[in-house]
Design a protein around this nucleic acid. Structure first.
Lengths: 240, 240
DNA sequence: CGCCTAACGTCTACAGTGTAGGCATCACCG
DNA sequence: CGGTGATGCCTACACTGTAGACGTTAGGCG
């Protein structure tokens, strides 16, 4: 009975290294990516790590805190270069990066979008606030007044998140069904009440998210630049 | 023992009428508005109605279906007039209506935003799709090509949802704390890492959501009209 | 009127959840 | 060597969604 007594039952995979916040969070992320948000229970995650579920509470106070941690982990994949002098190009690049990130981790998007609603700005995980600070830096360095930078940020990030939600809604995992109506389940809609929606089925089916995002960003950025005292042209007032 | 035997214990309020889907859903909405999404458990809702929790399953297959029902109920508060010839005015009005609706029911915004992510378009509650169809009608009747109408809708609704999320994030319930930093919890942020964010605290504190939304809509609509073959001016190509 | 049927509401039970509190074990440092 | 704090495990509790079987009621039809 003095043998190390490896538990033969639970550990789904042989991970037996010492726990750490990073390990816990990244395993949680894997789990969510693979099986969805609901699969992320303390017990399930514990089992995935080959540890007692209670161990997890050493690395996250709550389940909620754990979710926040995962959000933060994902957002850290996003690189921002606040020193880029070409702020428009930088914003466009960030937008596409965030879009791709969302497509890579679709199951986390609800977290990204929902968690901040129940946490006042200053109490959010720092990693979550870094993009905000960095984009402010980018804009202010480019010549925007601080207050205007905030407005630009809001319009920009608002549109960006909206676009991601839109695209993910229309995104359908199952690519075997190549009939547009079926893929989107539109066949169930009463033709009488939803004529235009049904008529648009083929267009709905091939959604070019990148292009749509790009156009939106274009419109927003040029519109904003015209309306605010932009960086290069400090007093170019509203044109229309 | 032949008396009607009113149960003296559970019913928090004297509601004892026969159940109905509307009654169930509206009580659920009340509950969520008052105490948040987590408070909406089957047992709690049953108790609120003075009924056994199991009764609810006659009116909603799932807890998920119940949530969908509540979403639908809220979205029905939104009035759209697809026959309005002034589509820009109509879109702007809808935007403000939806914004107010979100401020009135902040706790269901996560639902509005999250549920569609896990339900293919055609399987969503019909009430949820009506805005989409009606806005398409509005745009097409105004002269947009069907496909362009879809693009306009996407940009518009994307921005709109994004704005609402933004505003609700910065919205703070507790108005007793009048110190901006405290209200947003910004005092906790390390000054060194978040200088601009902290400097913007006062601006962050008084957020004029309506104005910000209005400007965004302006920019988007004029930008879109310039880029697409608009309604009145069928071939007005991109200006910039 | 009485009956039948389907909708409605209730009860019991079960597997699964987050997490508080206490205890054993381990690594490490003086 | 002893001790001290971090780490992991265990038990237990209140609570969740919901399957399945059971009474109870309401409404239509003879």
């Amino acid at each position: 009975m003095t043998a190390p007594k490896e538990p033969l039952n639970s550990p789904a995979r042989g991970e037996k290294a010492r726990l750490s916040r990073e390990l816990v969070l990244s395993t949680a992320l894997e789990l969510v990516d693979r099986e969805g948000l609901d699969a992320l229970t303390m017990r399930r995650l514990g089992q995935q790590l080959g540890r007692d579920p209670m161990s997890l509470y050493r690395y996250a106070a709550n389940r909620a805190a754990l979710l926040d941690g995962v959000s933060e982990l994902v957002l850290n994949e996003l690189a921002i270069f606040p020193d880029d002098p070409d702020w428009r190009a930088q914003l466009r690049r960030i937008a596409h990066d965030l879009r791709l990130l969302a497509l890579r981790h679709p199951n986390i998007v609800p977290l990204l979008v929902t968690r901040p609603l129940s946490t006042p700005l200053g109490l959010r995980p720092l990693g979550t606030l870094r993009p905000l600070e960095q984009i402010l830096a980018l804009l202010i360095d480019a010549g925007f007044a601080a207050e205007d930078a905030l407005h630009v940020y809001r319009a920009y990030y608002g549109f960006l998140y909206g676009h991601i939600l839109n695209e993910l809604q229309e995104f359908v995992v199952d690519p075997d069904e190549n009939e547009a109506l079926l893929r989107l389940g539109l066949h169930r809609l009463p033709v009488k009440d939803f004529p235009r929606l049904r008529a648009l089925a083929p267009v709905l089916a091939d959604y070019d998210g990148a292009a749509e995002l790009d156009q939106g960003i274009d419109i927003l950025l040029s519109g904003l630049a015209a309306r605010l005292s932009g960086p290069g042209k400090p007093a170019e007032e509203a044109l229309g």
